[in-house]
């Protein structure tokens, strides 16, 4: 299992605040209901979308197939010297 706790916790809490906590503080008035729905749906859709992207990469079945020049460049700039 390639999941790590920090990103999952951070993004879940972030969208949780938007979607669950914020609706309680929606301004009173005729548009309160709309604002709540907007907040909850935004959080739900954005969280789901992020979750799918995260889970799809947790256990990769294939690796990227790269050009050797690109690989050399990657080693160079992403800080992993060629042995």
């Amino acid at each position: 299992m390639g999941a790590s706790v920090v990103p999952i916790a951070v993004f879940t809490i972030l969208w949780g605040i938007v979607g669950i906590v914020c609706p309680f503080f929606a301004p009173k008035g005729p548009n309160r209901g709309i604002i709540q729905v907007v907040l909850m749906l935004t959080a739900a859709t954005c969280w789901l979308f992020w979750l799918c992207a995260y889970m799809a990469q947790m256990n990769p079945l294939i690796g990227p197939r790269l050009d050797n020049e690109t690989l050399i460049w990657i080693s160079h700039t992403w800080g992993n010297r060629i042995k």
Binding site: A3, P7, F11, A53, P64, D67
Partner: peptide, 13 residues
């Protein structure tokens, strides 16, 4: 462990 937010940049390359 995967790239924390979105698709890993390596895939675009």
């Amino acid at each position: 462990s995967p790239y924390p937010f979105g698709i890993d940049p390596v895939w675009q390359l």
